Computed example of a mutant assay.
Amino acid sequence: MRRQTALLYLASLLCVPLLGLADAQAADIAHVSMQRVLQESQLGRDAEARLQERFSPKTEPFAEKEMAIRQLQAALERDKPLMSEAQVEKKETEIRQRIQAFEQDFSAVQRELMQAQQEEAAKILEPAGVALKALAEKKKLSAVFESSQSGILYLDPESDLTDELIEKMNKN
């Protein structure tokens, strides 16, 4: 019980300055959508192009394999009334095996793609941090938040620096 009371007291102490912050220093806080920075900046578009070039040849065969599995499933559904129980079971087993092999192979490529995306994002985040620091100092901001992070209930659209950050990064 004491612990809960102490936590409530600490929370109230932290909230009191924040309540006044909205009136006194609203211009000192801004936000940025890093997702948009990663997608719309020139560095982000270049990274996406590199990923496409690297992974398109690896992912294209999966579309063909998926189509073949779907065709087998459709043929089974169409011909099922004409097939014996053993034939149906054999076809279902074949389809399950193909699906399992497809998922196993695809998950390996997906893991590799996710790793490559993280590496490419890391290459963008460093220059984004430098550009954001310069932008925040220029605008005399005391804080810049990532707009998609949970816990933020309201963001003034006027405090969004994403477009300016992308522009600054592209100039650099």
Rank of each mutant, 00 (worst) to 15 (best):
E167N: 09
Q117A: 12
L13H: 03
R2C: 10
E94N: 11
A101R: 15
M1D: 14
M34I: 13
A101L: 14
Q110I: 14
A26Y: 07
F62A: 04
T5R: 06
V37H: 02
R111Q: 15
Q4L: 13
R98V: 12
T162A: 05
S12W: 07
L21P: 00
E77Q: 10
D28A: 01
V32E: 01
Q25D: 03
D28S: 02
E94Y: 13
Q115L: 13
A30W: 01
L161C: 04
A122Q: 03
Q117C: 11
R50C: 04
Q42A: 11
S150K: 05
K139N: 09
D28L: 01
Q110V: 12
E120W: 06
L161M: 00
E66R: 10
A143I: 08
L13M: 10
S84C: 14
K90W: 15
L21D: 06
K138F: 03
A22R: 06
A121T: 12
S142M: 11
V37A: 08
A134G: 09
L72F: 15
Y154E: 01
S147D: 02
E146V: 09
K80G: 11
K58Y: 10
P61V: 10
D156P: 07
K139T: 07
L135F: 06
M169Y: 00
K80F: 10
I29W: 05
M1R: 04
A47P: 00
V144L: 00
